[in-house]
Amino acid sequence: EYSEEELKTHISKGTLGKFTVPMLKEACRAYGLKSGLKKQELLEALTKHFQD
């Protein structure tokens, strides 16, 4: 599980793409985000969540 700060850091540095799909799905579930099946959809959901 990833902390909010850790995820925000990866988003701001542009390194969230280094996460694997299972890692991204886990992060989306942890924050109650609707997650797609594609890596890009997962990245967009997390990025949008933490930028709002």
Rank of each mutant, 00 (worst) to 15 (best):
L33M: 02
T9A: 12
T47R: 08
S3R: 07
P22C: 03
E44S: 10
D52V: 06
K39A: 05
P22A: 14
T9R: 13
V21F: 07
E1M: 05
L33R: 00
K38G: 12
P22M: 06
G17S: 14
I11R: 01
T20R: 04
Y31N: 10
L7S: 02
G14E: 05
G14D: 07
F19W: 13
E1H: 07
Y31Q: 09
P22H: 14
G17E: 15
G17N: 14
L16T: 06
S3L: 11
T15M: 04
H10Y: 10
G36S: 12
R29M: 13
G14K: 11
E6K: 15
L43D: 00
T15I: 04
K48H: 06
D52P: 04
E26R: 14
Y31V: 10
F50V: 08
Y31E: 04
K39W: 01
K18P: 02
D52Y: 15
R29G: 08
E4S: 08
P22F: 05
E26N: 04
K8A: 10
S35F: 13
K18D: 13
K48I: 06
K39G: 03
C28R: 01
L7P: 02
Y31R: 09
G17T: 11
L24I: 01
L33I: 11
K18L: 13
E44Y: 11
F50L: 06
F19A: 03
L37T: 14
E44G: 09
G36Q: 00
F50S: 04
T47C: 06
Q40M: 14
L37Q: 09
E41M: 07
C28F: 07
K39N: 00
T9G: 12
L46I: 02
Q51R: 09
K39I: 01
G32Q: 04
G17V: 14
Y31S: 03
M23R: 09
V21W: 06
L24E: 01
L46T: 00
K13I: 07
L43H: 04
T20P: 11
E41D: 12
K34P: 14
Q40A: 12
L43V: 15
L7M: 09
K18C: 13
A30C: 15
T15P: 04
T9K: 13
K39E: 02
C28N: 02
K8G: 07
L46Q: 01
L16D: 01
H49R: 08
H49N: 04
E6Y: 09
T47E: 05
R29V: 08
F50Q: 05
I11W: 09
K48W: 07
K39M: 00
D52M: 07
E1L: 15
E6R: 14
S3G: 05
